[in-house]
Amino acid sequence: MRSERKASVLLKCAAVAGLLFLHLPILLIFLYAFTTEDTSYVFPPPGLTLDWLAVTWNRPDVWQALGLSLRVASVSTVIAIVLGTLCAAAVSKARFFGRETISLLVILPIALPGIITGISLRSAFNILDIPFSTFTIILGHATFCVVVVYNNAIARFRRLSGSLIEASFDLGATGFQTFRYIVLPNLATALLAGGMLAFALSFDEVIVTTFTAGQQQTLPIWMLEELVRPRQRPVTNVVAMVVVVVTFLPILAAYYLTREASSSRST
């Protein structure tokens, strides 16, 4: 009894330590967003101020980088949802020559180190004479965004019994109606989860982006540049804080959405 109690206290300590290890650095980032010292990070901060919020707000390069990141992430997520769903539908519902190979090829980009994807895309763009632009960044991101949507969608397709689709046709529905009323609703939560993951992956991607971007900076690349400049350092922290808060909300929403859906579908 006594030793059991001791072990549980120990376990609690370990758990708390683990959580602190994971989350303390994030809290420190928040803290240094309000420091008065702008060239180096000293602990404890000499003073606290809200000035950096205003400074950040007025920096056009922050807005540019944020805008580009949002644009890239949204477009590659949309591409990934369309292509990933179609591909998952084909692989799970039809039998054709090379089916397994296609499945493997779609998943490969996520297993491949980003640097390989980056280099190969860069040389491909060079060979094809495609100038580096927002478009090339989006293509680069789409390669790995498709994978997460595909994986989510194919798992759901496998659970979606083929007779549901046949039942819909049998009752007089057209192909479009079957997709709209039967396939899509059963796929929706999987696509939401896959889409969010794709968005998040794209939003903080660095390696592939450095190889496929021209002169533009996405937000993570902007941050990387900013850290080596010993001026207005807390601006980076303010941006990081806003990103954490803004990305946390949809993830929380997705968590509750999919949880409700799965609990009401218990069979």
Binding site: S163, L164, E166, A167, D170, I182, N186, R265
Partner: peptide, 13 residues
């Protein structure tokens, strides 16, 4: 013609 499927194929949603 309409069918009663073996696994019923009711739309779960």
């Amino acid at each position: 013609v309409n069918t009663v499927f073996q696994d019923y194929a009711l739309f779960p949603h």
